[in-house]
Design a protein around this nucleic acid. Structure first.
Length: 571
RNA sequence: GCACGGUUAGCUCAGUUGGAUAGAGCGUUGGCCUCCGAAGCCAAAGGUCAUUGGUUCGAAUCCAAUACCGUGUACCA
């Protein structure tokens, strides 16, 4: 990375000054090397003189001069440097340094942008984990794509990442599903029963019932559908929903390594195991919670419950582990699940959750802190909801009115590329408007096409070269010197940033940084393409510009690959 | 009430671990195809970075209050 090159230069100079007594022997050097917003301020700038002025007891500009005079001799990357503003040091790279980048990109090809800074750290990302009680909706899709790209980013910086889906195949909601199916199933035999409050009304429930009828006949037919459905019916329904979910994820090209069953936690005694550990630390007691502040539930009544002292670990109040009927709460299972994750030895855990689970973060983290002593093991990223639009108008969705639009319908209509790219356009913490018509538009209003078009243009140039039978680009890169125009330098600067962008996006778990970077590269290339003739008559110039264009194509392809979006050669 | 997220151009949003004159798309106005893909480009206009105070060489960014918006708020998942 070019940035670390500059960092090393500055650091060497500071050490030199330290030997000269400008700094105390134990002085730590904390400074930044950054990309100036304004290109008149060079390719890189450092604030070292500003930050260290106090400890050197020198005015910043004066210290900056000292730093410059102590920079190691013999380096060839930087053409010139200057002291600017209040005491910044600006570095201007030699043209060769940027031009040689094209050789690097050509050699590294699909690997350009990757690094090993993750040092093989084992990280688990748990995402989607949508309840297997119905089809996936847009919000699930956004979480799925976000999680998938965070995995890809972490892998790109050299982490060893595992993808996991937590299946909520235990608990009350699965029984509700089973009951809903069973009632619809009876309807298929002419026994119409009204759907009780809380049951799932969706069309898909009927589909499951039909499948049950087709595969198992009238086996589950009874005079009245029982309130508690047989486990086999529940399992049938869950399996059906899970199959749909797997198909939806496949449509979006999102694989998983592990499908972890909540029920297995119950069956293998892991919940008991976790609660015993909490009990051994004296963190469990029988108690009655205060009524919640603000909006009071109407059916609130004081109940003695088995509680975990999560408030000792940063949570607002203690949390119940068992319901009044004695069965475990979802939270109890989640404690066991996360303890299990910790015991599997991951160096880091990342959960991608819908924003409606935000209030849940502290209690899970407090449980992990209590059981493992680690407060930073689990990192949770929240993904805000998606609003569906069509031609600028919001699409009203209602489960009851049957106007619910599923993820599958949107993916089938707009395509996986458009859906993925759009989901990655905004930071996950902010709400997202998804316009179906815009996502399918073939104009620069549609950022997906804008980026893909830039890539296709590069390949169009390559095809042209072959048509004219002049693909005889010299092997030695001497001709790269011909890249002297400002837009060319601008493009090279953009390309040189790519590894930095990948690293930052990975560390901060912010896929949209890649998306926006690609939009910038595409814009810079479109500008260049319109202003300059790539396939010039001059052989060397043509070769140089093609080398630049091919590098642009490579970087866009690498970036799109990180996003899981295709990079078509023709459109 | 509390917790979390948000507040930046008419609209939708970026904004690099605090950096120099705050950016993009859409929309508006005006230009560019005898030339490599106009699915593109160029230019103009458009801002009290919600408000107030604080921290420091320097704040959209950090801290504290305030005001709105969203989500969640015992025994659902």
């Amino acid at each position: 990375m070019l940035r670390s090159l500059i960092e090393q230069l500055v650091f060497a100079s500071l050490q030199q000054l330290q030997q000269q007594g400008v700094f105390a022997a134990e002085q730590p050097f904390v400074f930044q090397v950054e990309r100036p917003r304004d290109k008149n301020h060079g390719d890189f700038a450092t604030n070292a003189a500003l930050v260290l002025a106090k400890s050197a007891r020198l005015p910043p500009r004066q210290l900056a001069e000292r730093i410059l005079s102590a920079l190691p001799a013999g380096q060839t990357a930087v053409e010139r440097w200057e002291v600017a503003g209040p005491g910044f040091i600006n570095f201007f790279l030699t043209p060769q340094t940027l031009q040689n980048l094209l050789v690097t990109i050509g050699q590294q090809a699909a690997d350009y942008g990757k690094s090993h800074s993750g040092q093989g750290r084992r990280i688990q990302v748990e995402f989607v984990s949508a309840n297997p009680t119905g089809p996936m909706h847009l919000g699930h899709g956004r979480g799925a794509v976000t999680g998938d790209v965070i995995v890809r980013l972490l892998q790109a910086i050299g982490c060893s990442v595992e993808r996991e889906y937590y299946i909520n195949d235990a608990g009350g909601q699965t029984l509700v599903l089973g009951r809903s199916v069973l009632i619809r199933y009876h309807g298929l035999f002419g026994q119409e029963w009204p759907l009780p409050e809380g049951c799932y009304p969706g069309e898909y429930v009927l589909d499951i019932a039909k499948a049950l009828q087709a595969e198992q006949g009238d086996r589950w037919l009874t005079p009245t559908p029982p309130e508690r459905p047989p486990q086999e019916v529940v399992d049938f329904a869950i399996a059906r929903c899970l199959a749909w979910i797997r198909d939806d994820l496949k449509l979006l090209n999102i694989p998983f390594d592990t499908w972890f069953s909540e029920r297995s936690l119950h069956e293998e005694g892991l919940i008991v195991h976790a609660i015993e550990q909490l009990a051994s630390k004296d963190l469990i007691y029988e108690g009655i919670l205060e009524p919640p502040k603000g909006k009071q539930p109407e059916d609130w009544e004081p109940r003695p419950q088995r509680l975990f002292r999560s408030s000792r670990f940063g949570d607002e109040v203690d949390r119940p582990l068992q319901k009044s009927d004695g069965s475990y709460t979802y939270f109890a299972a989640d404690i066991a699940y996360h303890l299990n994750k910790a015991e599997r030895g991951f160096a880091g855990l990342i959960n991608i959750w819908g924003a409606d689970h935000g209030g849940y973060i502290k209690r899970v983290q407090s449980a992990l802190a209590a059981l493992t002593g680690r407060h930073d093991l689990l990192e949770v990223r929240l993904v805000q909801m998606v609003n569906l639009f069509r031609a600028g108008q919001p699409v009203r969705m209602s489960k009851r009115a049957g106007t619910f639009v599923t993820l599958r319908e949107v993916v089938e209509e707009a395509g996986a590329d458009a859906v993925r790219f759009w989901f990655l356009l905004r930071s996950s913490g902010a709400g997202l408007d998804f316009d179906l018509d815009l996502a399918m538009a073939k104009t620069n209003e549609n950022p997906v096409f804008y980026v893909q078009y830039a890539h296709a243009r590069v390949h169009s140039l390559r095809r042209r070269l072959q048509d004219r039978e002049i693909s005889d680009i010299p092997e030695s890169p001497h001709y790269l010197q011909r890249l002297s125009e400002e837009p060319e330098r601008e493009l090279l600067r953009h390309l040189s940033r790519f590894p930095e962008v990948v690293e930052q996006a990975a560390l901060e778990k912010e896929p949209q940084k890649i998306t926006h970077y690609l939009l910038e590269v595409a814009a810079a290339f479109h500008t260049y393409y319109n202003g300059y003739k790539i396939l010039d008559e001059d052989t060397d110039l043509r070769a140089a510009r093609m080398a630049l264009s091919k590098a642009v194509g490579q970087v866009i392809a690498n970036g799109l690959t990180l996003l899981g979006v295709s990079a078509p050669e023709q459109m």
